[in-house]
Design a protein around this nucleic acid. Structure first.
Lengths: 350, 350
DNA sequence: ATTTAGCACTCGCTTCTAATGAGTGCTAAC
DNA sequence: GTTAGCACTCATTAGAAGCGAGTGCTAAAT
């Protein structure tokens, strides 16, 4: 039952323990950890020299790194990954911290937007990292009612109300070939036949099911196609809610302007953020460093939790921080917060 | 005709000239300017010693400062103020730069929001400062049409469309004391009697003009009051559009994290920004340093330009940068951009 | 076969000193 | 009124010295 460099790629108990202690310590103090520091812990019975040997092995295996030849060790990305996957002190051990549930203001929030915004703010306040809530995509909601309200002879506003109470609206140009009566018919048909369809599907449903109906009832069916495209061509509409955008500035590893700048720029770039934070996986996921597949994020971890409505995934709440994050705290926090959001959201529809 | 420290508080021609040259130079190089530097300019005929005397006087008068006893001079806030008010090389002298008009994408922008967003982005790209567009306050717009769309037995969505095509919407709780027929009547009355009124006025107009009508037509007039309050209690709704939020980080005077942080935090604080950027003055205004009345802004200048619609002020476009800004360039830029925005906006309503 | 004490060595960080140079204010001469 | 000359100030830079936390390796101890 020998220990360190076995061929089977397994770590000895002692190695596991040392690795965990080291990462815990590094996360807490953000400074390279040396053999002496570890050996000083009362639950460690080995001398610094022994520890050193183990550390050297752990480094060879890729779990640790040095900042320079004679420095202490810091966790590598692989080290963090292993820590998160196998070494996190069992998560359920945070019983009295769970009161956070109450942190979302108890007064009944009416608008989902306020809930998202509050959640993001709370999360960033509690962690001192940056948080992002990815709101539901209104286009996935179901059409409750639509309407076209003329503004002038040429312009009008089209309004779509979803089952969740979202309102999507856009200004449209009325082709002068279109007759008011046809417009009215169009609206009626859409409301009668397509109520309950997801907004995003409206256009294709029309193509498939309703072209006959249109042909029958409308005088100028030809031009209607172009108009419908204008009316129903959606652009992505998820909304992002931020908390603690500048919190990164107080993280010691980003105390350098040239390192924060790309980060802050990244945060401001909508599509990158959407990509980063989108995830359809249930529960909490952790992406570490380069796993986020963007240069600016290489020293950051992203924790992602999805929230649901009637059991269906509709958005995420995420936390962005340095790779050395307080994973344990943060994961359980995100877990409970996303549950709470789910609850609140489902309350709305009562 | 003596020169420097006259009792009348006027500056001599030479002092004016030196002051302007110094500030120009400082704005360009962002480094304290010494007497030698100034005397080296070919249009200056005096020796460094003479310049030094003038500089000392200008300092006594409060237009200049030193960073330490033996450093060159930098402009004081008062210096910048004077420069902006009296020394700016006549603004109209930027003829070939005026093509910027075209910078707003020529394809016809339909939504005002896109216009605002583009303008902010262009402005920050062109200047490398941070820009903010304060959108129109939808509540100042006139009611075109309103509607209440039920979601469930208790919830509904209220929608207000303005003459400019803005859509305001909110979820409301339907008191179960209210009868559907009354709701319908309410909507009808509002549309008939209050079309054309500014949203913000709706509630008071009802109090003043319509309570009689309500009393007459509705069964349950009592509870209506509370409901109306819920329906028509607006919260501020200006929208802010940003460009170059992180540009501050590349300004040499903010190369220090502890100095940028408050600035970035300030930018993220809605109400502070609204206050900073609101201005009902016509044309371009310049606020320098502490004139902005906030600690975080003490080393910044804010240039503000208002844009209008049908001659009425409806919003502003602003630039935030270090007090040593390229005022000349920036002011003329803002002037032409705000005009262009005004033009585009008025095109919409055709 | 592990474990540990001992030791030489590395490297980042801090402190100190000296040198440099841009700039000033003042005085006396032009 | 202007300017040359000079002593003086102060921020910045470079180098040298010393400190200390940490390592790897070897040889002895368990």
């Amino acid at each position: 039952m020998s220990a360190n460099k076995r061929g089977d790629g397994m770590l000895s108990e002692r190695q596991l323990y040392i690795l965990r202690v080291l990462i815990d310590d590094y996360i807490k103090h953000v400074e390279p950890v040396g053999s002496r520091t570890i050996s000083k812990r009362e639950d460690i019975t080995y001398s610094p020299a022994t520890i050193r040997n183990e550390l050297a092995d752990l480094e060879d295996l890729g779990f640790l790194e040095k900042t320079h030849t004679s420095s202490g060790r810091i966790p590598s990305e692989k080290g963090y990954r292993f820590y998160v996957d196998h070494l996190l002190p069992s998560l359920s051990v945070s019983p009295n911290e769970m009161d956070r549930t109450e942190l979302l203001s108890t007064e009944k929030v009416q608008e989902a937007e306020v809930l998202f915004d509050q959640s993001a703010k709370i999360l960033s306040d509690l962690t001192n990292y940056t948080s992002v809530v990815l709101g539901p995509n209104a286009l996935d909601m179901k059409l409750r009612h639509m309407q076209i309200i003329p503004l002038s002879s040429q312009m009008a506003v089209a309004i779509f109300v979803t089952n969740t109470g979202h309102v999507e609206n856009r200004q449209i140009v009325l082709p002068n070939s279109i007759e008011p009566s046809d417009l009215e018919k169009l609206v009626n048909i859409l409301n009668e036949r397509l109520a309950g369809a997801r907004l995003i599907e409206l256009n294709s449903r029309i193509q498939m099911e309703l072209s006959a109906v249109f042909k029958k009832h409308m005088k100028d069916y030809q031009n209607m196609g172009v108009f419908l495209d204008q009316l129903l061509l959606w652009s992505k509409k998820e909304k992002l809610f931020y908390g603690g955008k500048t919190n990164m500035l107080s993280q010691p590893e980003f105390r350098d302007l040239d390192k924060v700048r790309p980060l802050l720029d990244f945060l401001e770039t909508r599509d990158l953020m959407e990509k980063l934070v989108s995830s359809t996986e249930k529960g909490v996921t952790v992406k570490i460093g380069t796993e986020n597949e963007h240069e600016a994020m290489k020293n950051c971890s992203v924790i992602n939790a999805s929230y649901t409505m009637h059991g269906k995934h509709i958005g995420t709440i995420s936390l962005i921080g340095p790779t050395r994050m307080e994973y344990r705290k943060v994961i359980s926090l995100l877990d409970s917060l996303s549950r709470e959001m789910t609850n609140r959201l489902n309350d709305f529809s009562k």
